[in-house]
């Protein structure tokens, strides 16, 4: 924190204002500039979160009788949810998606690329960085279009594999693997950049000393680098989990959750229930579950980093 000086000259600057007026002036001094932000945050962020808590306990729909006057139905939505085969399926798929694409895929690949880039020339680094980051900068709908073309029956992958006789419609035969790969492709850049920053803080002489002591590359990584970047790994895992948990556009555009419900993660199932069948109350109950999970991860992340505000 560089500057947090209150401005004493101005605090004392209202000479004949009585005590109450000065206090009011002081409150206004911070309240006025903060007000627009507070209003927007309360209406559009806190509002919907509280609203989702309320409507997940009602039978709110947009069609039929309940759309006119929804009523309080207690925990029925949650009871329905835990008995709902499709919801459980979606929950497991979300878990697989987060573990597969974020925790294993992006995290490991990002760390690997960052490690491989250490000590390489500038040209190598910028080429690799450029390509990996490009996949990250591309809007998700375009990423989906690229992967749709890449994996489709007459697509690039099948052409490349042509000789091996394994051509197939990947999006139908292996939809989860397809969306996981697409998300690894799209998200690895973030982990790579986080780890590049973390690795640049690992002192070179420590590694050198270990190397003089006869430590192999693998042991140097395990006993020197890894403990030093432990914090970055943990917070990276939290952040990419949060980013992956509610991924929608990429999966929706690539497989639409299909075939059937084979790649229907919870955000897609929530979308289907709320916007195709207009079961707003039920959809909100699922939204609440996602919010609580996201909130927990966000709290753990906050505890982990050193925030100094």
């Amino acid at each position: 924190m560089t500057v947090t000086t209150a401005t004493p000259s101005r605090l004392a600057g209202s000479p004949r204002g009585g005590e109450p007026r000065r206090r009011r002036g002081r409150t206004l001094r911070w309240l006025v500039p903060l007000a627009p932000a507070l209003v927007l945050l309360v209406i559009f962020m806190a509002g919907p979160i509280l609203w989702s808590v309320y409507i997940s306990f009602t039978n709110e729909t947009l069609t039929g009788a309940a759309s006119v006057n929804s009523r309080f139905i207690g925990v029925d939505n949650f009871v329905k949810m835990f008995g709902d085969e499709d919801f459980r399926n979606s929950f497991v798929l979300t878990f697989v998606f987060v573990i597969g694409s974020a925790v294993i895929g992006q995290n490991t690949l990002g760390l690997m690329i960052a490690l491989l880039q250490r000590g390489r020339g500038r040209v190598t680094r910028s080429v690799v960085n450029g390509v990996v980051v490009a996949a990250w900068v591309v809007p998700e709908v375009v990423a989906a279009a690229c992967w749709f073309a890449f994996l489709s029956e007459e697509g690039t992958l099948n052409k490349l594999l042509g000789g091996f006789g394994v051509s197939q419609e990947w999006l139908f035969t292996a939809p989860m693997i397809a969306v996981i790969l697409a998300n690894v492709w799209r998200g690895t850049a973030f982990s790579m950049l986080v780890y590049s920053a973390a690795l640049s803080d690992v002192p070179g002489d420590l590694l050198e000393a270990a190397s003089v002591d006869g430590a192999t590359t693998w042991r140097r990584f395990l006993h020197v680098t890894l403990p030093l970047i432990r914090r970055s790994i943990l917070s990276n895992l939290m952040l990419i989990t949060l980013q992956t948990l509610a991924a929608f556009g990429l999966i929706y555009a690539l497989t639409g959750g299909g075939p059937g419900t084979a790649s229907q993660t919870t955000p897609l199932y929530m979308y289907e229930q709320a916007f195709r069948y207009f079961e707003i109350g039920y959809g909100s109950a699922m939204a609440l579950v996602l919010l609580v999970i996201g909130g927990l991860f966000s709290l753990v992340y906050l505890r982990m980093i050193k925030v100094d505000a």
Binding site: W51, P267, L288, G295
Partner: peptide
């Protein structure tokens, strides 16, 4: 950290 996708139903 909260997923914006999740609040779209209430929004």
């Amino acid at each position: 950290g909260l997923p914006v996708t999740a609040i779209m139903v209430p929004v």
